[in-house]
Design a protein around this nucleic acid. Sequence first.
DNA 1: ACTTTTTATCGTATATTTGCGATAATGAAT
DNA 2: ATTCATTATCGCAAATATACGATAAAAAGT
Lengths: 111, 111
Amino acid sequence: MAIHKKEEFTQKEQDLATFAKAISHPARISILKVLANKNECICGEIVEILPLAQSTVSQHLKELKNAGLIDGSIDGPRSCYCINWKTFEKFNNEFNGLFTQLKIKNEKACC
Amino acid sequence: MAIHKKEEFTQKEQDLATFAKAISHPARISILKVLANKNECICGEIVEILPLAQSTVSQHLKELKNAGLIDGSIDGPRSCYCINWKTFEKFNNEFNGLFTQLKIKNEKACC
DNA sequence: ACTTTTTATCGTATATTTGCGATAATGAAT
DNA sequence: ATTCATTATCGCAAATATACGATAAAAAGT
């Protein structure tokens, strides 16, 4: 991609894009669902549920964590991940904001 | 990425991921906003508004079109793009569905 | 101390994305 | 018919993403 052009856009656009990218892989959507289902959130089971290698799952978890969508406490051998509802809520709202914003501007299609 | 593993997930998860990927770049979010603002939707102006080369913008438009988020009628020298509200609505709903689904399962955080 | 279990990280291979310039294509205008 | 304006596509380069096996790290149990 030669040079980073992403920075030339609005911060809000960038944030939203980053969030979208975080959930732009079925594995990561799946992980979020698994995390939501387990409220004890001990998460070695994710590896068994997903059709992916342990290292790959770990990588996806890392990305979700970087995006702020999940929290993880690495205490010892087993680590504990769970959804960060605060960030999640924030993005959910911003997302709906985008949808509404677009729709208000132009409800009638033109082609 | 060696082998495609994405197909091993739910169709719904794949669709949602594909949609998220389509809007996972600030340029594409920006394009959607521009399209929503113009209701005549003659769209050479997008190139002037975005900080990107014409060919790059064209590529982003193509991706949005492939994702079904916009429609484009290529009539001659100038072409006309506009948002496909039907698909948009569909994904907006599915998206909110995911959010709600996750939240219902586990409203209280565990770590 | 040693093994076991669990998870993160490193290295690597391949695929995809992003971006641009150059070029083709296409209809409008002259 | 030729030029002009507009957009799509091709070819390329660089960056990211995806996936895995191998290895490290870290606490718990023996």
